Amino acid sequence: GLPEGWEMRFTVDGIPYFVDHNRRTTTYIDPRTG
């Protein structure tokens, strides 16, 4: 799974992105792969 505090969501286009609730940021880069 994802690191603690992270969540995976999808855009309206079906593109996955990642929400970091710890820092309240979003990124398209998987936190597991950097």
Rank of each mutant, 00 (worst) to 15 (best):
I15E: 06
G5H: 07
G1S: 13
H21Y: 10
G1I: 12
T11D: 15
L2A: 03
R23I: 09
D13L: 10
P16Y: 05
F18L: 01
I29F: 10
R32Y: 04
P31G: 02
R9I: 08
T33A: 13
R32L: 05
F10K: 06
H21Q: 09
G5Q: 06
D13K: 12
R9V: 08
V12Q: 10
M8E: 08
G34W: 13
T25H: 13
T26R: 10
Y17F: 13
T26L: 11
G34H: 14
T27S: 10
D20V: 03
R24W: 13
R23M: 14
G34V: 13
W6D: 00
D13A: 13
W6G: 00
T11K: 03
R32E: 06
T33F: 11
G34K: 09
V19W: 10
T27D: 02
V12N: 12
R23G: 14
I29A: 09
F10P: 01
H21R: 08
T33G: 12
L2Q: 01
M8Y: 03
T11P: 01
T27R: 02
P16F: 07
V12W: 12
F18V: 00
Y28F: 15
Y28K: 06
T26Q: 14
E4P: 15
P3H: 03
P3T: 03
H21D: 09
Y17V: 10
T33R: 07
V12R: 14
E7K: 03
G34A: 14
E7S: 11
L2Y: 03
T25Q: 12
T11A: 07
T26S: 13
E7P: 00
T25V: 15
R23K: 13
W6H: 01
D13S: 12
T27N: 03
P16G: 05
F18I: 01
D30P: 04
P16K: 09
P31N: 03
D20W: 04
D30H: 04
Y17Q: 06
I29Q: 13
P16T: 08
T33N: 14
N22P: 08
E7T: 11
Y28H: 11
R9W: 06
I15Q: 08
T33D: 13
R23D: 13
F10E: 07
M8H: 02
E7V: 09
F18M: 00
G5I: 04
G34M: 13
Y28E: 09
P3M: 05
R24K: 15
Y17E: 05
N22Y: 11
T26H: 13
M8D: 00
D30S: 00
Y17L: 10
T26F: 15
I15V: 12
E7R: 01
I29N: 10
W6A: 01
E7M: 06
V19Y: 15
G1M: 14
G5T: 04
I29S: 08
R9P: 00
G14Y: 02
V12D: 14
R24Q: 15
I15F: 07
R9T: 04
L2T: 02
H21M: 09
D13Y: 11
T27V: 06
P31M: 03
D30I: 00
T11R: 08
D30L: 00
P31H: 04
I29W: 10
T25K: 13
D13Q: 13
P31E: 03
G5V: 04
E7Y: 07
E7N: 02
G5E: 04
T11F: 02
R32P: 06
L2F: 09
R9G: 08
T25S: 07
V19K: 05
N22F: 10
R9Y: 09
